[in-house]
Amino acid sequence: MWPVLKINTSCYRAVTRLDLSVRWVSNNATIPSNLFLSPGEWKNLPPNTILQLHEERKFKLGPNYQPNVDELEALYSTSDFTGQTKNQIKQTYQSHWAANISKKGRQKHIKVKKYSPNELKHGLRPFQFDDLPTSVQEDLDDIKETRYYQRIAAFELPQLIKFRQEYKPVDMKQNPITYKYTTYMGEEHPNSKKVVLSCRTSELGLNDKQLHKFKLLARTRYNFETDQFKMSSEKFNEPLQNAHYLHDIFQKLINESKDLSMETFEDIPLDTRHIKSQNLRKRKNGKTYKFPEEWNRPEDAPKEMINILKEIFN
């Protein structure tokens, strides 16, 4: 950090605070916003304005700030206003410009970086305690968002009453087919493209011969215990494509089942081995064993204890 010019007077603090607001609010048209880059033009300005430009130059230039002889000459003119002598001002400013004096003892001007208007537009105005901190602004944003949805709930949602309709369950006889989609909210998953088609064969409107042929063609996709036909597809990348593919396959299966001109397949029994094997696997994984009746020994069973609560309430 560069040494700061010390001014021991309370009057200066009050005046500079006042001039700070006047400079940025009322005198913005008379004093250019980039005047701090040209210390040579600070002459004949009021002392409080010179001090403000000095602080502004150090703040906005930051690491690029370098002492300037014109700036020091302008600070000399504030001696009567601040109550400090020129020697005191020079000693305070010494660390800035001592290293920039040539070997011949002549003072040289320092080239100051020229900022474009776009660079001075954002983030270069010093904080004047005229805005809320970042944490408070975040809390206010949360409150604004909450109130936004509260206004929607209070004023817009009641208007949806005019679109209210009575719920009627889906007639499974008219719409026997069900499509099942899987969605993983907020993330991508390879299983999200999978679509499952299911229906009950008794609701397809087929006669006994057509239904038997349909079950034979379905093979392992038909469960004779639940009368449920099910098939799935994840062949395509989009769920809608898989749904259309399942619809086409199911339509071909229905058309083949209705066509009894060539063969009815009445003499072929229904294959149920895949369902029986599924049940065996479930029993094996669940470890459900039936206790043999010949192992029962009722004479060794523990004697029943007296239930005091039952005796009292009875």
Results as ranks from 00 to 15, higher is better:
171 D>S: 15
273 R>I: 06
128 Q>A: 15
232 S>C: 07
8 N>M: 02
278 Q>A: 14
279 N>Y: 10
160 L>H: 10
164 R>Y: 11
304 E>G: 02
229 F>R: 02
12 Y>H: 11
201 T>Q: 05
33 S>H: 06
314 N>W: 01
213 K>V: 02
233 S>Y: 05
234 E>W: 07
261 S>E: 15
103 K>E: 12
66 Q>V: 05
22 V>M: 08
244 H>D: 13
276 K>C: 07
46 P>Q: 08
127 F>N: 15
292 P>N: 09
59 F>N: 02
62 G>A: 12
293 E>C: 02
196 V>S: 13
287 K>E: 15
14 A>N: 12
277 S>M: 11
168 K>T: 13
182 T>W: 09
310 K>L: 06
266 E>H: 05
198 S>L: 12
187 E>V: 12
55 E>F: 06
125 R>I: 04
99 A>T: 05
99 A>E: 13
243 A>F: 01
208 D>E: 15
158 P>T: 05
144 K>A: 11
28 N>Q: 13
154 A>I: 00
231 M>E: 14
4 V>M: 10
18 L>A: 11
128 Q>C: 12
245 Y>T: 01
300 D>T: 05
262 M>W: 02
54 H>I: 00
25 V>D: 15
32 P>A: 11
247 H>G: 08
294 E>R: 09
173 K>V: 06
294 E>K: 09
95 S>L: 08
261 S>F: 08
295 W>S: 06
51 L>Y: 01
54 H>M: 06
156 E>D: 15
170 V>Q: 13
7 I>F: 07
298 P>R: 10
110 I>W: 03
74 A>V: 01
70 D>K: 01
67 P>N: 09
172 M>Q: 14
48 N>E: 14
175 N>Q: 14
89 I>E: 01
106 R>W: 05
29 A>G: 08
49 T>R: 08
282 K>H: 09
260 L>A: 07
251 Q>S: 15
131 D>W: 03
57 R>E: 01
57 R>N: 03
26 S>E: 10
81 F>H: 03
165 Q>G: 05
251 Q>I: 00
43 K>M: 04
55 E>M: 08
242 N>E: 09
9 T>C: 07
27 N>D: 13
195 V>N: 05
311 E>D: 04
115 Y>E: 02
10 S>V: 09
159 Q>R: 12
123 G>Q: 09
77 S>E: 03
213 K>R: 12
97 W>K: 02
237 N>G: 05
108 K>N: 13
62 G>M: 04
192 S>L: 02
75 L>S: 00
164 R>S: 13
11 C>M: 11
193 K>F: 04
83 G>W: 03
63 P>L: 06
51 L>P: 01
216 L>I: 12
197 L>F: 10
59 F>T: 03
120 L>F: 04
295 W>P: 00
43 K>G: 04
83 G>E: 05
268 I>M: 12
203 E>F: 07
106 R>E: 13
228 Q>N: 14
